[in-house]
């Protein structure tokens, strides 16, 4: 199924980031659906827009604690808000890079947009979204895929 391959690409993008930059793999929890159009976010969210063969958006959202630890694992001592936002942007970039590689021209992917401390700004364009919990160390983040 095409959709499965697509979602997997996004998941790989997100988990790869942990594995390559923190040398510690992230695992995913069992995915589920959110049908009320409000998949929810943590404090920091990196959004990429998608159009072309499919339309919608994908976002990676994580709590501050997780991102701080991730930064520290990357030997980064400056864990300011700015740096954390950069980090979320990076994860989103990796996800979109993966997608670009796998889907090519027909899958047009926007430049990531980072939203922090403002959960209301992130809304899924369609009522049904896939939520993939990402577990890393003791923390949990979410990857939300909302495709038409």
């Amino acid at each position: 199924m095409l959709k499965e391959a697509e979602i997997r690409t996004f998941i790989d993008g997100a988990t790869n980031y942990f594995e390559t930059s923190a040398q510690q793999a992230a695992s995913i929890g069992s995915p589920y659906l959110v049908t009320d159009g409000n998949p929810g976010t943590f404090e920091y969210t990196g959004v990429i827009g998608i159009t072309g063969a499919r339309k919608g958006m994908v976002y990676f959202t994580a709590p501050r604690g997780m991102l701080t630890v991730l930064l520290m694992r990357m030997q980064e001592t400056d864990t300011s808000d700015e740096n954390i936002k950069d980090l979320v942007g990076e994860v989103a970039n990796t996800i979109s890079g993966n997608a670009r590689r796998d889907f090519g021209k027909n899958f047009v992917i926007s430049v990531p947009l980072v939203i922090a401390h403002d959960a209301d700004k992130v809304t899924a364009p369609h009522s049904r979204s896939y939520v993939i919990p990402i577990n890393w160390r003791t923390h949990s983040a979410k990857l939300v895929v909302c495709l038409e």
Binding site: M1, E4, I11, I28, S30, P31, L33, R128, Y130, I132
Partner: peptide, 16 residues
Amino acid sequence: SGNDFLPLVIKLDDLL
């Protein structure tokens, strides 16, 4: 692992 459940969710989506 969680990965194995992805096809289920997609089928759930389809069923819904």
